[in-house]
């Protein structure tokens, strides 16, 4: 099978790899780079567990051909912390009990980050809209929405 050379920024670091034709970004991240934070939930765009940011925009890595991120910047939950310091969203998720099994959490956090990056003080409705592509079967969403709102207002307080 022909392999394609691929170079992109992964959480601020340059990576270069060869991928088989048809390999999606989720598999490339998990199996070739070893970043296990994006999760497989459905492989067909239904659950959002595989959500990542590409050039700051939210994407489903399971529906993204790996080749298409050539030269672009990919962010995953693995890059959310600032060294040992948790991101305000991570702290808020902890405090608001916004994860139970934790399987949707990486995708949720990336969806929430995409929102706060473009809209630092979203309304409740905007938070709901922003995470509407991410399924959580455990929490019932309420604590997640509260966490995103708490992180947003916390961010404002610090700013």
């Amino acid at each position: 099978m022909t392999k394609t050379a691929l170079q992109f920024r992964h959480n601020g670091r340059d990576v270069a790899l060869f991928v088989d034709g048809g390999v999606n970004l989720l598999v490339a991240l998990r199996e070739l780079i070893g970043d296990m934070t994006p999760k497989f939930g459905c492989g067909q765009g239904g659950c959002g567990a595989c959500s990542v940011l590409i050039d700051g925009e939210l994407h489903l890595s399971c529906l993204t051909l790996a080749e298409t991120v050539n030269g672009r910047a990919v962010e995953t939950l693995d890059g959310l912390k600032d060294g040992p310091n948790l991101h305000p969203l991570q702290r808020a998720f902890m405090e608001q009990f916004a994860a139970q099994c934790g399987y949707c959490t990486p995708g949720m956090l990336m969806a929430a980050k995409a929102l706060l990056d473009r809209n630092p003080s979203p309304s409740r409705a905007e938070v709901i809209e922003a995470i509407s592509g991410n399924i959580c079967r455990c929490t019932g969403y309420e604590p997640i929405i509260n966490a995103v709102l708490a992180a947003a207002s916390g961010g404002r307080a610090r700013a």
Binding site: M36, Q90, F93, A99, Q100, G102, T105, L109
Partner: peptide
Amino acid sequence: TQRQDMLGHVTGTSTYFDDHK
């Protein structure tokens, strides 16, 4: 009371079966 696995969940380091390579 904080869940003991919460830090792993929010940092994506909780290890599910499929996270073993």
